[in-house]
Simulated assay, not measured.
Amino acid sequence: MSTTAMNMIQALNSALDNKMSEDPTVLSFGEDTGYFGGVFRVTDHLQKNHGLTRSFDTPISESGIVGAAVGMSTYGLRPVVEIQFADYIYPAYDQIVSEAAKMRYRSGGQFTCPMVVRSPYGGGIFGGQTHSQSPESLFTHISGLKVVIPSNPYDAKGLLTSAIEDDDPVIFFEPKRLYNGPFDGWHEKPVSPWKAQELAQVPAEKYNVPIGKARVMREGNDVTILAYGT
């Protein structure tokens, strides 16, 4: 595969574009995700490349966005919806937990819910009260849900591809602090996260990183340290 230097935003955009090109049942929608390309530009050019019926904007209604995705997914589509910031996901919590997560079980396997809820999450960018929350623990304890949080551009693309192809609902949190690159460190004045560039060599073509399998960064004998995202 040929590779290109990408930051996490570009890698996620590439994953969406690849899957929408490959599979006509994949849709992308949310607040400002169509024409504008999203607040962080993760959905940039998707509407231009795939049309208004597959990449579109929604009203400001998180429960409506997720509720529509639940209905679409049970009828055979694969919606990828964006909650503009994870801090705004709470009005959709009931739809995610009571409907999407339970669809396979409650229908005895007759229906599945192949949908992805994407959202920028976490602190580290001085976003204040409603742009810095990390609500992943509210979802990791729910049967029927998978929660995915990438830590680098390569994994971000491969994991999002796997999430879209999964036949059950996936919550996909994207660390805002890593979108364009991490801070230089806390002892010196931090680099602005909007200007820093943390690039990785990412294949332009589609590929998968499996969900639920940890990467061993360093082997040891005494303790196991699990980490994710930032």
Rank of each mutant, 00 (worst) to 15 (best):
E31C: 05
R106D: 06
G38Y: 00
R177G: 03
S162L: 04
I96N: 01
E205C: 06
Q84H: 05
F172E: 09
V209K: 04
E99P: 02
N208M: 11
D222Q: 13
N221T: 14
F56R: 00
S21E: 13
P135G: 13
F173A: 09
V97I: 14
E198W: 12
S63P: 05
Y121P: 04
K146F: 07
G229D: 13
E99C: 11
E99D: 12
F173T: 06
G37C: 03
G220I: 04
S143V: 02
Q197C: 11
R41N: 08
Y93I: 11
W194T: 08
D94A: 09
F85K: 00
L52F: 12
S143E: 11
I225D: 09
G51V: 09
M217C: 12
P169N: 03
S55M: 10
R218E: 15
E136F: 11
T3A: 14
G212F: 09
A200N: 12
Q10H: 01
M6C: 09
G181D: 07
Q110L: 14
L159M: 15
Y90A: 14
G38H: 01
L16G: 03
L77I: 00
M1R: 06
P190F: 03
S134P: 08
S2R: 09
K195T: 13
L46T: 03
A227C: 13
T58N: 11
V39G: 04
Q133E: 10
I89E: 05
A196R: 08
I125L: 15
V97T: 12
E188L: 10
V39S: 07
H45N: 14
N49S: 13
N152L: 02
M217D: 14
N152C: 14
Y35G: 04
I89V: 15
G185L: 03
L160P: 04
V70S: 03
R215V: 13
E188T: 14
Q133V: 04
R54D: 06
D87F: 01
A200C: 11
D166W: 02
F173M: 14
S134H: 08
A156F: 01
L46G: 03
E219R: 06
L77W: 04
I149L: 15
A204C: 06
